[in-house]
Design a protein around this nucleic acid. Sequence first.
DNA 1: TACGGTCCGGTAAGCGCTTACCGGTAAGCG
DNA 2: CGCTTACCGGTAAGCGCTTACCGGACCGTA
Lengths: 358, 358
Amino acid sequence: MAEPKKAKGTLTIYDVAKLAGVSIASVSRVLNGQGTPRAETRDRVMRAVRELSFVPDGAARALSNGLKEVVGVVFRRENGETYLEGEDESFLFIDVINRGIEVGARRRGFDLLISSVGFNDDNVVERIGALAGKADGLILHDRMLSAAGIARLADMVPVVTLAGTSTPASMNVRCDNEAGIRDLVRHLVIEHGYRSLGYVSGRADSPDNRTRQHAFETEAVAVGAEIDTGQAWQGNYSAAGGANVVESLLAAGRKLPRAILCANDQTALGVIHALAQRGVRVPQDVAITGFDDVPVARHLHPPLTTVRQPMQELGAMAFEILYSRISAAAGKADTVLPVELVVRESCGCTSSSAKDGA
Amino acid sequence: MAEPKKAKGTLTIYDVAKLAGVSIASVSRVLNGQGTPRAETRDRVMRAVRELSFVPDGAARALSNGLKEVVGVVFRRENGETYLEGEDESFLFIDVINRGIEVGARRRGFDLLISSVGFNDDNVVERIGALAGKADGLILHDRMLSAAGIARLADMVPVVTLAGTSTPASMNVRCDNEAGIRDLVRHLVIEHGYRSLGYVSGRADSPDNRTRQHAFETEAVAVGAEIDTGQAWQGNYSAAGGANVVESLLAAGRKLPRAILCANDQTALGVIHALAQRGVRVPQDVAITGFDDVPVARHLHPPLTTVRQPMQELGAMAFEILYSRISAAAGKADTVLPVELVVRESCGCTSSSAKDGA
DNA sequence: TACGGTCCGGTAAGCGCTTACCGGTAAGCG
DNA sequence: CGCTTACCGGTAAGCGCTTACCGGACCGTA
């Protein structure tokens, strides 16, 4: 406040020490709460720090401590510049997860170094590698990189992937897709007595989708329901994709199964819309379920029965796993978070029998 | 790929140098493209780097170079955990701006260190201060901190604020609110001949809002229109706030002005909705305009006449300003980006006369 | 053959911090 | 009253990198 300081940013612990009349070691100790400095020493240091608006240089601390307290987070941009309607949803997911990571990180004094990757960027691994050099570890969102790419990065720093699969070198955190689908199938078959089921899939390259589809087939067989499958059921996680599946199924004159599980809520939204257009009633003629429990799910007509994934916990957990790996060289390779069946009305339950998990 | 490396992360430039059979200086030079190493030297280094999956440590580089290549970005979370419907909009703004910052940053090899702040977090300045220690500069989104808080941070690192006002120590980037409002007022008064105007304001504490309101009053007077003002016109940037204003104006039996400017598109959305409820026709009875040009603006009934702000450019510009300050100790204190009037139909233009800027 | 000029590449210092180590002072004890 | 013990706090090394500086090798020229 008083002296004309040197060129901003050149302020070091030496300046503080000089002003406080102590050694740099004392300044460092006070700042980090190490040792047991005398009250007077502490005061003098604190006063000098305040006077100078001193903040210790993160790079120097990192170098000395071997800990940057920074975690790199990488996600995929849907496309270059503009944002489409449908994109909001996945955007929101990413944000909620990142928020979870941030909450977990803050608890340990870490900050988030964020980088997004476009669909057809090149040198992605190199770019993320550079990021890795500035962080203690990396969290990679869904569908970022090939297994080989992940392995290369995992060679440099600890890596946690989300909703993927763990590799020898990287750890993974995901939600319990199997349990979610299993609960859905059982609810539909055992409680409602539906005998025929269909599954509108998500993007073919998504591990989450593959897991869900596989769980669907396995569980349906286990409870003795018929399933309708095939290329016609291929969606892509979007409402448009879901509507398409219904259109082409109907156009081909196929009889719809009694209940249709959708890969995610967006898809269910499209399916319900397309069905309504054709005069098919939900749930009287066909029961529909989603997956995710996005905010609008409860406002659909009928309110959507779905599976809630704990997105924010997912992020927080991803950080925690990474952190334990960073600080203790140990971390669970594959972590599965529980999901929750949210029964509303699109499955055929009535608002009185449905217990909305909200 | 072959040797059992030392504990991951302990890999240094010395390891690379040893494997390549050169000195650390050569490794560094090759990695940074300095000097003119022989082709053979370069090859040996590159091969060793690849073999070891080496990435130079960012902290050490930063310490040595005096440049971290990291910019801190701070924004405000609307509230703790859940996300409300209306929040999406501002969320999106933040994301688009951040995306702009990222684009600008990438060009210079910088990454984004991101931190969000809750409404009633405490020690905000301390927390951001810690962030500042890990970054070369800070970009603060709208309405984060008091001027004093900003000043304290600006004492530590270069600071750019968005949509605020510059202080002696910090720089600011914003859109040209005055011009936007001026264009709107002129269009309504001069081209359409409306003689009475109203302005539904945004949050009272928003610099953007204050600027817009002031420009509205000034310009309306300048072109000789009557204006209706007062407490009744206080909105809060939300659709609900806009609807509220209309409700209470109507409930009080006040005659509406011929045209109403809204502080932002969200507000206009609420206003149009409330008006429709009461049977007031837009634009036949009352013309409405927004501000921002959010994606839905063109899909409203009638399509909304508004002002487009170059959000992504805003972010990119903020970074560029900050960067010039970091690298050359100079940066424009106050930067104003041009906006664009987007004439659609809610002002009374017809789709043929309106030239949609999309 | 000898000498000057180029060009590479190695050696070492230093970036700002943390902390092991050690020395000095004061209090406790015999 | 002198010696041990404890407690603070200072000195200096070292974290992994960049780069100024310098020396050696090789070329060209006389």
